[in-house]
Every structure is written in structure tokens, then in C-alpha cells.
Computed example of a mutant assay.
Amino acid sequence: MELKTLRNFITVVQEEGISAAADTLHVSQPALSRQIKELENELNATLLIRGNRSRTIGLTDEGKLLYRRAREIVALADRTRDEITEGDMIEGDVHIAGAQTAAMRTVAKAAVRLRQRHPGICIRLHDDYGANIIERLDNGFADFGVLVQPIDMSRYDYLPLPGGDSMGVLMRHDHPLAARKTITAADLNGVPVIVPQGVLARGDLSGWLGHHAKSMNIVGTMNLMYNASCFVQEGYACAIGPAKLIDTSWESGLTFRSLDPPMHTKLAVAWKNKQPLTPSATAFLDALRAVIAA
């Protein structure tokens, strides 16, 4: 499989048809059709479900798999090219995959320090949760991952981030639990809640909930607290998540109550311990160490 062919296949999928893709790529439709057919022959699989006159297409299961992998292959190839051509100049992209956390301010301070010294560097943020962040690190799509602890860090080098997140419940001002100063596990019996996907995957709440875990009414998961706050404002549910991420002024209609007993998360910035860092990633790491030391 050639990179050019994979790029063209991606365009066909994104343009939802061979005709539209040919116009975008400035090639003839027969030539593009022939290229896609040769790709199918090479893989011994049908990739496209062709509509009338090949104007619209759908994807077979094999086509969906190739589309996902092709985007990864092309992205990694582009990144490799950029890293090699970067040379002695400290510029380029630093990819950071991170969970949503107030501790990201430390990362942001490091980015400010980095930009002051190397204005040609661009930070690429990828918001996600634990399993996907680790996948990005392992596949080389992220230089660094901001990970909630505890997690197996044997494959990574890492720096603990100072502070951490105090967990609590985001709710509307008029919710019955808003009258309480803190929220216990018993308070949440039967209450519809949205929880972070990472918290659910790691089982972080299990110890805090104790025997009340069976009465939890989880009606949704999220990666970004802001998106969950929109559901909370509309009365869909309360949301369990980190403090200091959402506006809880009176005008917002929202309020936040800490968990009782308190629950705090610890975080670390991790990178592959057997994968050499690019000059720009090394410069970011130097800036992060300086910020943490200060």
C-alpha cells in the first residue's frame, strides 16, 4: 500500500464519493476508480459500497477498518517527516494527550515558558481519557500524556504534577442536594449522575461509594466537564467530576459540592521510556521541569 493511495482513499471516504474526491484531488474519475479497485485487489477485500454511478459510497467493515488505520498511518508518516526535517531548529509540534484537570495549568505554564524561548513550537492538545491517552502514547501519536493515577507506569518515564483535583458533584442551584455543604455516598442513592469515562474505567469511585455502589444511577459518561455541565444545566442529571473546571457563579445556575469523605486525584505527565524525544518535545520537558521546580 502506497501512502498516496491511502491518502486518496481517505479523500474518497471524506468526500463521500469518487466523483467528488476526483474533483478535490484534481484527477480523473476513471483514474481514481482504477486506483481504488487496485487497492481492493491488493487487500483481497471489497472496501466500498458503491451507489448509483459511483456518486455516493458507503464503507464495508473492511473499508471502515482501513479508513481508521489509513488515517493513523498517514498521520504518523506526516509527523515522522516533520520530525526529520526539523533538523537543528527547535520548532514543530508537541503533541499532548490529556485528561481534563485543573492541573493542566501547570502544563500551560510550561507551554508559555516554552513559547518564550522557542516561538516556532506549536502545542497540539488531544482531550481524552486514560485508555485512549495510553494508546496515543504507545502508538507514537502523542509525545506526552497527562494521566490520572494510579496506573501502570512501567513503560513510561513521568513527572508527578503538583496539586491534583478535588472531586465533587456539579448540580443545578435548585437541586435538593444543593442545600448540603458536602455530598456523601448515601446522598447519591438513586440520583441520576454523569461520571467521567476514565473514573468509571478505573473504578475510582468504588472505594468511596462502598456498599452504596449498587444504588448508583449512572445515566451517562463524559470526557469533558463542560459538555456534562450543559446536560446538568438542562436538568438531565448531576455530574461527578473535578472542581474548578466549571463556572459556578450565581448567573450560571450551577453549584459544586465536594465529596465527603474528600476524594482527590493525583496526576502525572508521562512519555515512552524507550522512545527518543524530538528536540521540541525535549524543550517542552525542560520547561515543565523548570515550572514544577519553581
Results as ranks from 00 to 15, higher is better:
180 R>T: 07
200 L>A: 15
162 P>H: 09
186 A>S: 12
221 T>E: 05
199 V>N: 07
164 G>Q: 04
183 I>M: 03
156 Y>E: 13
172 R>G: 07
188 L>M: 09
197 Q>I: 03
180 R>S: 10
223 N>Q: 13
163 G>H: 06
231 F>Y: 04
214 K>E: 14
222 M>K: 00
182 T>M: 08
209 L>N: 04
229 S>I: 01
206 S>E: 14
205 L>F: 15
205 L>H: 10
232 V>S: 04
192 P>I: 07
209 L>M: 10
220 G>K: 03
202 R>Y: 08
195 V>I: 14
169 V>G: 00
201 A>I: 05
200 L>E: 09
172 R>F: 09
221 T>L: 04
198 G>D: 13
213 A>E: 10
169 V>K: 00
192 P>E: 07
209 L>S: 08
169 V>R: 00
218 I>K: 12
180 R>C: 12
176 P>D: 09
182 T>Q: 07
185 A>M: 11
158 Y>V: 00
197 Q>A: 10
165 D>C: 15
160 P>W: 13
198 G>F: 04
164 G>K: 01
227 N>L: 05
216 M>Q: 13
200 L>Y: 08
185 A>C: 15
162 P>V: 11
227 N>K: 05
180 R>V: 07
194 I>Q: 07
208 W>Q: 04
209 L>T: 04
215 S>P: 02
170 L>T: 02
157 D>T: 06
186 A>C: 08
190 G>M: 07
174 D>Y: 06
212 H>V: 03
182 T>N: 06
151 I>W: 05
190 G>N: 11
153 M>V: 12
201 A>E: 14
223 N>C: 09
157 D>W: 00
192 P>W: 03
227 N>R: 06
221 T>N: 05
149 Q>L: 15
213 A>C: 07
200 L>H: 09
152 D>G: 11
150 P>Y: 03
172 R>I: 03
170 L>I: 09
216 M>P: 09
177 L>H: 04
169 V>F: 02
186 A>T: 07
189 N>C: 10
167 M>Y: 13
195 V>S: 00
165 D>Q: 14
196 P>E: 10
167 M>V: 14
213 A>Q: 11
162 P>Q: 08
166 S>V: 14
155 R>G: 15
225 M>K: 01
164 G>Y: 06
224 L>V: 13
169 V>L: 12
177 L>A: 05
189 N>R: 12
156 Y>Q: 10
210 G>Q: 10
159 L>N: 01
199 V>R: 01
175 H>F: 06
203 G>N: 13
198 G>A: 15
219 V>A: 05
165 D>G: 12
151 I>A: 12
217 N>W: 04
228 A>H: 02
